[in-house]
Amino acid sequence: MSAESSRCAEFWRGVRATFPLVVGAIPFGIIFGALAVNSGLSAAAAAAMSAFVFAGSSQFIAAGLVGGGAGALLIVMTTLVVNLRHALYGVTLAPHMKHLPQRWLAPLAFWLTDESFLVVVERYRQPDASPYKHWFFLGSALFMYTNWQLCTWIGVFAGRTLPDPGGWGLDFALIVTFIGMITPGLRSRPVAMSALVAGATALLLAGLPNRLGLMGAALAGVLAGALTERWMAAHRAEPLAPPTAERLPPP
């Protein structure tokens, strides 16, 4: 296969892998647009936020804060905290993307969302040595981005005619997307332990402002997973490892 056709193939693979996540993001984008205009943002500001910030949960919270009369500084600081998890995603992807120039890294970083991160990290972990996995990322990112813009506009128009978008129940779409992504992986014991500890810690820290608890819970979960993995490796290695010449007692 020529280089160009492999790039193209990776791009469309990224688009296809992201399709279910786009379905889950559609309702979320629509409620964002509707919520934004209902909480007093102009249609242009709602569209600009989706175009230039492109971070669903923080846009959602910002719309809520605008509705509550909060100032720009508080909203920007809240955005910072809510989006801190993207730094974790960046750190995870970084070892795979070392070879890329900044003209690739900057736009891909801008387009880094929960959804694209999840499919892209899976792609990077597949053992094949394709040098074009960043094209997969690009396909995933552009699909998510285009969809997010369209859904925001739909929401902006729907929100002008339909009141109380928060009550439509569309917010469950994001939750079920994440449930669908997390559940199959729970067959691995370290992953299950990681999710359990993160979930429990998030409940305990739910009182902290601005979703700071989310970061604490995520870090606790990562630590729990890593420790479980080490503990399992240590306890599996001894009884199961086949005896080797060095381990046999001297005659």
Binding site: M181, V191, S194, A198, G199, A200, A202, G221, G225
Partner: peptide, 15 residues
């Protein structure tokens, strides 16, 4: 690092 996705998702989903 491989525990970041399940940990972040669980921290969002459970609450």
């Amino acid at each position: 690092l491989k525990f970041i996705p399940p940990a972040v998702l669980a921290a969002i989903v459970v609450p």
